[in-house]
Design a protein around this nucleic acid. Sequence first.
DNA 1: TTGTAAGCGTTATCAG
DNA 2: CTGATAACGCTTACAA
Lengths: 345, 345
Amino acid sequence: MKEHSVTIYDISEQAGVSIATVSRVLNNSSNVSEATKKKVLNAIKDTGYTPNAFARGLGLNTMKTIGILAADSSDLYLAKAIYYFEEELRASGYDSLLCCTGYAHKDKKAAIELLISKKVDGIILVGSNFVYPDVADNKYILSAAEKVPVMLLNAELEGNNIYCVSSDDYKSMYKATGELIGSGFRNILYFYNSLSYSGALKERGYRDAMKDAGINVVERQLQFFEGTREDVHGMAAQLEKTASTGLKFNAVIAADDTLALSAVKYALSKGYKIPEEFSVIGYNNSMLATCSEPELTSIDNKLETLCQKLTATLMGVLSGEEMPKKTIFGGEIVTRGTTKGGTSK
Amino acid sequence: MKEHSVTIYDISEQAGVSIATVSRVLNNSSNVSEATKKKVLNAIKDTGYTPNAFARGLGLNTMKTIGILAADSSDLYLAKAIYYFEEELRASGYDSLLCCTGYAHKDKKAAIELLISKKVDGIILVGSNFVYPDVADNKYILSAAEKVPVMLLNAELEGNNIYCVSSDDYKSMYKATGELIGSGFRNILYFYNSLSYSGALKERGYRDAMKDAGINVVERQLQFFEGTREDVHGMAAQLEKTASTGLKFNAVIAADDTLALSAVKYALSKGYKIPEEFSVIGYNNSMLATCSEPELTSIDNKLETLCQKLTATLMGVLSGEEMPKKTIFGGEIVTRGTTKGGTSK
DNA sequence: TTGTAAGCGTTATCAG
DNA sequence: CTGATAACGCTTACAA
């Protein structure tokens, strides 16, 4: 079964040249005469030889691999990001080592260390949940950055060898909340499920927009959902419960499309007319936005652009160029059926 | 920048032992006295030494990595599968090299070859779309299997070193169609978007159930959707167009939840009462099932179980055990609001 | 229980 | 333009 696989020595023998020459044509480097090149190429073809990646890795000290860390690769948004990254990276000649870490700090730390030990050339942290409000909790990222460049998608962290690409969540949320207010809604509930840095920005966007409009916000108007990311029923139930305790709200701005969709379900169950009596804005402009009925108005944060930019930045860093430590794109509200500007479709 | 990183030699020196001994404690192998072990461990801790994965790979001829191939890692179903695989594999001490191939044969072939050249220990093909009806088109899988074990999720292919784990799509579809028929529907449309082997099985399940119930099926009743996997609008539009050409149908059985959801949208737009006047059954029991309004009755094919079993089988194969070439689990209909048995919720 | 030394398959540095 | 040969850092017989 373990037939001694064909090595560079076999080729050198077959072609009647030295292994150095074989290596040269392999990396089509420096000067090799067309004649010998052809001989070597033929030998390679004959034997079906492929270079041993480990040996090459040892010599070059890289296997052209980027570690991608995501809490949950099946999360709609993260999955899309991973998809874009993998695509971009491969186009740049890099492979993707994927690690799903879950949301526990301990596991994130373990995963990042594992990746480092596997000698990846760089690390991409997908999603805001890797950066914690408490500085000490981010030390594991700083440590990793001592070894390889660390890229953050939708998160911000100051540090050597750390690069951030994100969309302006604060501004997007501010604008979206303003849109709702402009449509005449005042009792707007903020529905969220992440305590990350980016989550905090979104919340501040909401708060500031309300304040700037002269609307007072009570704390119960900010509803934190603790359940799993896909538990639409649980989310709707929480809104139901909130309403039953006497809090009045006729609009919901959500930090995520799933939460927004649950708000639509809630409103429908109450018999409210959407968007006239009850409006909803989601976040991420994911597939769920068009799956909802009525369809969700949602904030598009240009994920593909972010991923492309991040990958390009990483490639730049890896080739020794000076790259921006922080890149921020603007978001955009995509208006659909759950807000007044939208079509009913 | 490129400080000569600490190697096994540094440790051996610090601890005053040979590199062989260091290697031994590293792999906590054979007999090492507690005393020397402690010395080595201390040296390791002091220096922050980590073994060079490439060198180890060269020596052991493995880096404990499994290649995962999926057409689209952001597809709801595939993303979930990837998540489960990554989790299971890591628990078994393996990393996951992810490759998204798209649906083109050429790219799948290229990706699988790339993975082989990176010396992965095994390959998992996620999703039925890797196996083609035409035997010749599957040669690229057979070739890969000459090098490393190839695992197929939800697909079947006979071959040496190839192992299949799947759910019984034929039977599930047969049952689901029967359910619709049992509820009194006769004009049942089959809506699908994949021509894979598994896709063919589903179709046969539908056809046989109809035939066994004595219901004639015209070809237009099988609607193939060619657009992208997330284009709910396009899907609904196709149903609309089909209806407008005069084909009558008051139930849809779909090969995928997204297709099913579009059927719900279509029915709603027509003003049909669901499930009384119009019923729908989806496939995969994905998150979309509960996102839909009303919620989708859908076929659960036990994805997590499949992934666990597949990983366990792979681990068995890698450790030289004899493993079943084919493992098949049964599916299950999860009844919700789009069929009569279900609650309206 | 521990050390010596021979690989593992490349790349890269010198000479020629 | 080409060929020896020394790394690269680890594992693993084989000796001691």
